[in-house]
């Protein structure tokens, strides 16, 4: 489902003396449907970077990233947008929302954007929020004022609203209490069982062990920093 082939990434900071920082060289990874792969490596080694490259949020200097039939590296912007709508979901580390939109609308958005009728989208959003213990009294408020944990749960609800065939999860259980943590792990396992290809970053070892089939160490592809 997701195939990363020999990708490399370099950041060139023009305004800081054109410093070139090579963060990844020739990384390759393959994730099949129903598989969950954990990206591991020291902080700053490039785990989130790789995830963003797969999502198209970061530019990849060389190599190929196939998600389904599309090579994200060479795809046109509208193709990436379409991919993000129907194929590839992404739950980032921090909730980033358009301001002034209610929590319910935030979560229903991925369904509405793909043509679901409003009632169905709302029902699904409500069900997810209930499952993740976001009380009904918060549903009409914008999540920008919520606590870190609440925001993360809204983030996850949004990520799971639409049945994507592939998911990218960046620290999905961070800032969650044990009950909600268990719920999220359960949701991920159910997705796996449905055949979703998942790439995740978990600092939580126990969670990682519980749901991931294997680990991918990005450090192996991190060039020596002193270069």
């Amino acid at each position: 489902m997701i195939t990363v082939e020999n990708v490399s990434k370099t950041f060139t900071l023009h305004n800081q003396g054109a410093a070139e920082i090579s963060v990844m060289r020739d990384a390759s990874l393959s994730v099949a449907a129903g598989e969950c792969v954990a990206l591991v490596g020291a902080s700053g080694a490039g785990k989130s970077t790789l995830m963003r490259m797969i999502y198209g949020n970061y530019l990849t200097q060389s190599g190929r990233i196939m998600v389904g039939d599309l090579d994200v590296v060479t795809a046109a912007p509208r193709q990436v947008i379409q991919l993000r709508r129907t194929t590839l979901g992404y739950v980032s580390q921090f909730l980033r929302v358009v301001p002034r939109v209610s929590t319910l609308d935030v979560v229903a958005e991925p369904l509405l954007a793909t043509g679901s009728d409003r009632d169905h989208a709302m029902q699904r959003a409500e069900a997810l929020l209930l499952r993740l213990n976001i009380p009904e009294r918060l549903w009409q408020l914008s999540p920008t004022t919520f606590s870190g944990g609440e925001q993360q749960r809204v983030n996850i609800a949004r990520g799971f609203a639409y049945p994507y065939p592939a998911l990218l999860l960046d620290e999905p259980t961070a800032s969650l209490d044990p009950t909600n943590r268990a719920t999220v792990l359960e949701m991920i396992l159910q997705a796996k069982a449905r055949g979703v290809a998942i790439i995740g970053i978990f600092h939580d070892h126990a969670a990682r062990d519980e749901i991931c089939d294997r680990e991918f160490d990005v450090t192996a592809f991190t060039p020596d920093r002193s270069v």
Partner: peptide, 21 residues
Amino acid sequence: SGLTDQVLDDPQHAYTQLLVS
């Protein structure tokens, strides 16, 4: 030019980097 979030989150050109920062 490119995807909005890509150009803003991973600007390549010196001027874009300046603008974003």
